[in-house]
Write a protein that binds this DNA or RNA. Sequence first.
RNA 1: GGGCGGUUAACUCAGCGGCUAGAGUAUCAGCCUUACAAGCUGGGAGUCGGGGGUUCAAAUCCCCCACCGCCCACCA
Length: 886
Amino acid sequence: MTRDAAGLDKNFNHQEAEARLYKWWEESGFFRADPAAPGRPFVIVIPPPNVTGKLHMGHALDETLQDILTRYHRMCGDNTLWLPGTDHAGIATQNVVERALAAEGGSREELGREKFVERVWRWKNEYGADIVHQLRRLGASCDWSRERFTMDEGLSRAVREVFVSLYEQGLIYRDYYIINWCPRCRTALADLEVEHEDRPDHLYYVRYPVVGKEAVLTVATTRPETIFGDTAVAVNPQDSRFQDLIGEKVLVPLTDRVAPIIADSYVDPDFGTGALKVTPAHDPNDFKLGQAHRLPSLKCIDDDGRMNQAAGRYAGQDRFDCRRNMLAELEEGGLLEKTEPLTHAVGVCYRCKTVVEPNLSRQWFVRTAPLAARAARAVRDGETAFVPKNWEKTYFEWLDNIRDWCISRQLWWGHQIPAWHCLSCGQTIVSREDPLACPYCGEDLERDPDVLDTWFSSALWPFSTLGWPDQSPDLARYYPTTCLVTGFDIIFFWVARMMMMGLHFMKETPFRTVIIHALVKDAEGRKMSKSKGNVVDPLNIVDRYGADAFRFTLCSLAGHGRDIRLSDERVAGYGKFVNKLWNAAKLVLNNLGAARLSDGAPAPLTLPDRWLRSRLDRTVRLMRRHLDEFYYDRLADVIYHFVWDEFCDWHLELIKPMLYGEDEAARVSVQSNLVYSLSVLLKLLHPIMPFVTEELWSKLPGAPGSLMLAPFPEGDDQVLDPAAEERIGFLMDVTRATRSMRADFGLPQAQKLAPLVKCGEPALASALEEYSPLLLKLMGAESLGLAGAETAKPRDAALAAFPWGEVWLPLAGHIDLAEESRRLEKELAGLGKEAKAARAKLANADYVNKAPEEIVEETRERLSAMEARTETLKRSLNLLREMEAP
RNA sequence: GGGCGGUUAACUCAGCGGCUAGAGUAUCAGCCUUACAAGCUGGGAGUCGGGGGUUCAAAUCCCCCACCGCCCACCA
């Protein structure tokens, strides 16, 4: 590829530059944080991706938003740390390795616990790094020297310390309870880990003969197989239909057991038959009823989802096979009254979608009430704020209704619970150090086989990664963290639990701001999923359009909504933006003369330069505001339009004549402003588009070191220049009016024009005189004249009216009178409508009296300007009519 | 059952009490103007989901309705 004088290729070669620049940044240690360094801390801990994961759009969005903040604050001179890492993802990872084993014809049971865990570690070390390397492709400026893993030694120590402390404080306990059980994963699940899906199903009406009476009690159930675990039938005590049956007994169908008929107000008389079968071992509600009425619990389904001995001859059958088979038997025996279709919510495992089986078992729980109350209070008191704020309601909703958290999992991959059970005396020991023998009786101990919920260790992430429980320098300097950036799907799973643990153990909120972003959907708004085949691979986008274009796209889409629709066209559009920037820089860099950035900020001399500096300053302020308030979409919008519209379309075009001209003083002034303003643009863009900006920075004469470490621009009242903005605004009006009239009259580009401007304001008129040469090319004009106050508009000239005056375009021989009349009439009509509305407002006494003074004043000014323009247009139109008339 | 969003141009979205409701894409017309045709210039395009209310003023605030989506939930 050919390079120009400034050393720039024709286009930005993102493939080559991204790899090279990232390597340079990383090797130079630019990402590394130093707790001993000065500066206000700015800290983000990454939401750790699962080691099993491949980088998907959700990560890409999440990491991009974090990197934008990180790079911005690093440039602001803050002591910035973005701490990366991965999560061991208990069930997910175990599933992956089990599948691999199965493919080899093995199983984890065959291998045994120790060997299996070794095998998972090998898998993790081999493949777990994938996602971490993929993050680098996006330009993520994480401090890789601090990378952590939820099962590394330090974090494991933190987990153990937390478990033991909570146990000692009575906030962790072990008990029999009905929990959600996944028969496929063969583990308990927390309530949160159960997803509810509406599925079409059936309601079966089953007859329970009443013992010693002719009566039959019919019960409606969706799960007839649990009949084998029935230990009562319940009715509502108010229900007149069943008064004489309360206290009697029924024969449980297909068994030889009898069960009492009990009364409880929980039963809804209007559902089904008003009678409810009670299976305390396999239904949470029934479990409660069982406790209240001291009913026995009878399990009829085993941990693998098969019926047990309680199911008699159905023992060993899968629960759903059993259902089918027993229904046939009920039918035959005349015990099935009827079957109705029913759609209801079925709980399924969030990992494998298997229908969960509520199951009575002994598990470990966290007593959440006190922790949750504190976590809610921290947000109510403003110690932590959500952005956007409305997510706080969701957060409160969950915390205020929280139930105890089941944390034990019957898996092998994870943090094994530090509890030992004495085989002899039955005591349980929970300890920081592995005990050798039972402290109560001296006999042998057996370690509790269960591991902890993956989210238990993630809950500690903001402080465990910084060295806790040790009082490390990192912990002292970087806790609490500043921002947490994540999707709303894990507010409960993760955010709320980090709040609980952080507040409990660190006595301080884990982060000041929680930035909740939308979820990335496909272009049609559908969730991306493998089964739908609509998954877009972020790395494929990066390959095709470059990380910068991709990041800019994600930034521009990251409004405060609920979902983000990613389309290829959008990314392609921002790819063009990268190209635009590249080319603008090429123009600048190839025409700088001797100007160097190290010469310092120039004193702006020419009007276009003063204008640009002023506009740039406003842009800097806006960018900072949007960055500080996390308005990513506005951030992208502001810089996009500044670069494209103001810098490229106007400034560069305005200064070209001076840049290429003979006047050396003007040229040098323009050049020094160019090198300076380009440098500011690159800084502003860098957090969003790190690669192309760094590459251009390296070509900027006199630009020191890496752009990553350059100071982010600040607003400067000295360069705000409203007068320059007004003058350039006026020159733009003239230019646009002329262009527009050319188009309206269909004049070819080759046709040179000679517009005249009539302007009563001396300051503007003098700007026109001075800078009209710069405009000629933009308008395709050969001359641009200033009409004196007494000059009348030539009869054959087209007209454009402005608050400051008029633009006339003499069109001898070209003017189409009818066309010009149409133009003016259209303009007048629009103006008339607007003026009418303004007049109506001002005629309204209520408006004049009640609206704020400045609003009313503004309306008055607008109206008088409109009236002046209307007059001008009318005069011109009358003139035309006279000419048209024979 | 409870809660939260959304409905604005052909498409994707922004605006959330006060300039003639904006942008990108798409579209139409004219241009290869020595940074960029991945470009330049000009234009067209919207009863802001429906209905009611509050207000001097409503896309914006309140109520009702319709449709779409999401989350939470132990009615079998």
